[in-house]
């Protein structure tokens, strides 16, 4: 392999891989936010806490019930999604007629409460969660070493993202969702149960966050603050991509992960802020986001 601008390819590829993995989390999380915002008009600030809950539920399943990683990948999103549905029915649904800001404040408050509860019971030092045996080890690709689990995170994220995109953009169920996003009143006047759709959509978006949490559990330690740290970046990703665009959320998520990784190679000092710099530039030039609608 050649050297690029004096950077050894191992370093470049290593950082690209990390960027791609971070991008996977950005993509899955911002996708969930986009789905929720599209239909509910709620900026779900509890998303980071729900991602954290996904990781914690998989840890609990393992340590309290002996249920391993693979079932947790399905069960944790279902459990956390169900909790999300309860929140939507009992609290969030009361705010739909109000400004976005109220939903943001409510879900922000919920996030703080959820994080506080977990901090209280589990502390902040983080709990270990082992990589499942089938995904331990790695592949030597010649120019770099790819840990199997990290490869899996990228593959699983891509599958979930494009599966969600397909469901929303190409299926009949998705056409209901798109229509209700545009004009919920008229969709209701055709006899479709829009409130139930809204509840299930919130549950689905929350489930996506929890899925990302399960994926994250073996990489990052399971920690009550894991979501709070990540969600700020994810909101920046959503702002850059444009609220409510499904493909925009996915592409921006992966793309910004990669840009962040490259920045770490070429200008490490800037890697922590590069996404926010891009956000500021996008806000000035195209405030509705790269993939957002002007409407």
């Amino acid at each position: 392999m050649f050297e690029l601008l004096g950077i050894p390819p191992q370093v470049l590829m290593g950082q690209l891989l990390i960027g791609l993995i971070n991008g996977s989390f950005y993509a899955v999380l911002s996708l969930g936010l986009a789905v929720i915002f599209g239909l509910l008009n709620i900026i779900n600030f509890a998303h980071g806490a729900q991602y954290m809950m996904g990781a914690f539920v998989s840890w609990m399943l393992l340590n309290y019930l002996g249920i391993g990683y693979w079932p947790a990948l399905i069960l944790a999103p279902l459990v956390v999604g169900a909790i999300g549905i309860v929140l939507e029915r009992t609290m969030i649904s009361r705010l739909y007629k109000l400004d976005h800001l109220y939903g943001l404040l409510l879900t922000f408050g919920l996030a703080l409460i959820i994080q506080g509860l977990f901090r209280n019971y589990y502390g902040v030092s983080g709990l270990p969660y082992a990589i499942p045996p089938a995904l331990q080890g790695g592949q030597n690709l010649g120019f770099m070493f790819l840990p199997n689990y990290r490869g899996w995170v990228i593959v699983a994220s891509v599958i979930v993202c494009f599966g969600t995109w397909f469901m929303i953009e190409k299926t009949r169920l998705g056409s209901y969702l798109r229509a209700a996003t545009e004009n919920p009143e008229l969709v209701g006047a055709f006899g479709i149960n829009v409130p139930r759709m809204i509840t299930l959509t919130y549950g689905f978006g929350v489930g996506l966050a929890a899925f990302a949490g399960v994926l994250a559990a073996p990489i990052y330690s399971v920690n009550p603050n894991m979501g709070a740290d990540l969600i700020i970046v994810v909101f920046a990703v959503v702002v850059i991509g444009g609220m409510g665009s499904i493909m925009g959320a996915i592409l921006t998520g992966f793309g910004l992960g990669i840009i962040e990784g490259l920045t770490r190679v070429f200008y490490p000092e800037g890697s922590a802020v590069v996404i926010f710099v891009i956000m500021a530039i996008v806000l000035m030039i195209k405030p509705e986001g790269l993939f957002g609608n002007t409407a």
Binding site: S175, Y176, R178, A179, T181, E182, N183, F190, G191, I192
Partner: peptide
Amino acid sequence: FSSLSVEENLHLP
């Protein structure tokens, strides 16, 4: 609905 094709609009109700 602008986010739906003609056919999807037709099949929505």
